[in-house]
Amino acid sequence: MTALSSTPLILAIPSKGRLKDNCNAWFAAAGVTMEQTVGARGYRASFAGFPDAEVMLLSAGEIASSLLAGDIHLGITGEDLLREEAPELEGRMQLLKPLGFGFADVVVAVSGAWIDVSTMADLDDVCAAYAHTHRRRLRVATKYAQLTRSFFAQARISDYRIVPSAGATAGAPAAGTAEVIVDITTTGATLRDNGLKILDDGVILKSQAQLAASLSADWTVEARSACERLLGKLDPVNPLYAGLAAHLPRA
């Protein structure tokens, strides 16, 4: 049994915000009713008619790390967080279904005042010139260190340094704590408000909420049958479980 619960199958959904509301709406549209468990401070729930499945309400980031650790079987969270947590998803997680909400792009953005920079190739030049002129590396503020490293490596940029950012990343260039940022954006309004622009070829990932499965969770026979039944109910059209079962080890 997994560490978090004794119920065979655990599904985690975001505990608050628009992602949670969208999850609830998706369940409701599939005719699945979620019932909050009394006395559990609202962080556990179950589905009516699915006694073998438990719903945990976690933060979007925790869902990604719990899937990777195998603490939960299924989870709904942003693809950006999944790919940041596990740059190589293969063999560790299976993306079962993009859910059509929670859209966000992970982008490279620079100050609008950098009128000489519109592509990653320009940024490469500026990184090299900056290191030479200022005797230190250009700083990139982000909470997506993994995604940033691999994207910059693809663009053959190496003269930079990552500054971890927990929040308000878009304010970093104005605050003087970094020169460039990698952040998520939906409408671009926050970036614009901070005087930033997205590079023409600076979209790292077009992300949305995903229903994902952990391949390292405890996939007991009971968990599998509960999962098959639940996925069949949530999406009667696409054979989601068959797609997952092909990647699970033999029970």
């Binding site: 005042a113 950098w114 104005a174």
Partner: peptide, 12 residues
């Protein structure tokens, strides 16, 4: 550049 006067120079 003047048209971007509100944007930070961001270290340069």
């Amino acid at each position: 550049l003047q048209a971007q006067a509100d944007a930070p120079l961001a270290g340069r």
